[in-house]
């Protein structure tokens, strides 16, 4: 559990960072693309807004959206995987067929098509589900299939447990490590898609403070104030790394538990 603290701290800073911002993140407070120094620790952006304040503010929306997308994706994938693995037969064939088709279509293409039809955040969630849920479902299905013949599943059947109780109380806890890992991976996928759609102009809209939007807006002035691009890019990379490391340390902890 010790390993959970750094992750929690990073998420707390990302979510509540706006409270630490020295300037209003959407107000113009200087000349465009001022180099770092003086009042602006990381300089100013394309419209002369404070980069530090915008960086501190710009992660919360992304993280919330990615977490929502990851949770919905993982929930749908786990539910489909459990049903397909446990019931087998036609349920398995239908779910596997749908999953195979979705896996075969490039996720970015799906995301773009959806983004044209619906608002950005909805598109991010829908595209993450389309891209991630089939993978989760397949992994959970295989794990469920092997759990079906496990001795502890026999024991639960001999107690007369209902199928629902068996899946929720026995199978799901037995694969909790797998489910958490899947949730983490789908969170990262949600983060990627949220950034991609924003970069392409479908996600967060100006003047919102958003890391992906900052990359898009500030790229032309990267020579004058590199930190206007480097800060959000570094923060995004850090967030993805922290999640990956947390998953890794959890897996190690499971091995030793």
């Amino acid at each position: 559990m010790r390993s959970a603290w750094p992750t929690a701290a990073v998420f707390a800073v990302v979510l509540a960072g706006g409270l630490l911002a020295p300037h209003d993140p959407v107000a113009v407070s200087g000349l465009p693309f001022t180099a770092p120094g003086g009042d602006h620790l990381l300089g100013t952006d394309v419209l002369g807004r404070d980069v530090l304040s915008r960086s501190l503010t710009g992660g919360a929306g992304l993280v919330v959206l990615a977490a929502l997308a990851g949770a919905v994706t993982c929930g749908i994938g786990v539910a489909c995987g459990l049903v397909a693995g446990w019931r087998g037969g036609w349920a398995n064939r239908v779910i596997t067929a749908v999953a195979d088709v979705l896996t075969a279509v490039p996720v970015l293409l799906v995301a773009l098509v959806i983004a044209i039809a619906v608002p950005g955040p909805v598109a991010v969630v829908a595209a993450t589900v389309a891209g991630g849920a089939p993978l989760t479902a397949q992994i959970v299905r295989d794990a469920t299939r092997s759990a079906k013949s496990a001795g502890w599943a026999d024991a639960a059947r001999c107690r007369g447990e209902t199928t629902a109780a068996l899946l929720v109380r026995e199978v799901l806890p037995a694969m909790s490590g797998l489910v958490v890992a899947e949730a983490g991976l789908r969170f990262v996928l949600g983060l990627q898609l949220a950034c991609t759609l924003t970069l392409l102009g479908f996600g967060a809209q100006p003047p919102a403070a958003d890391w992906a939007l900052m990359l898009r807006e500030n790229l032309p002035g990267a020579a004058a104030n590199p930190s206007a691009v480097a800060a959000p890019a570094l923060l995004l990379a850090t967030l993805a790394c922290v999640v990956a490391l947390a998953l890794r340390s959890r897996r190690d902890a499971e091995v030793t538990a």
Binding site: G151, W152, D154, A155, C158, G160, E170
Partner: peptide, 25 residues
């Protein structure tokens, strides 16, 4: 189709106790 009473009355002790215990519980 086994009755509740029979489920309780007949208990099975499998050979491999590790497999018979859910790793999560």
């Amino acid at each position: 189709r086994r009755s509740r009473e029979h489920l309780r009355a007949v208990q099975y002790l499998p050979q491999d106790p590790f497999a018979a215990l859910n790793p999560a519980h």
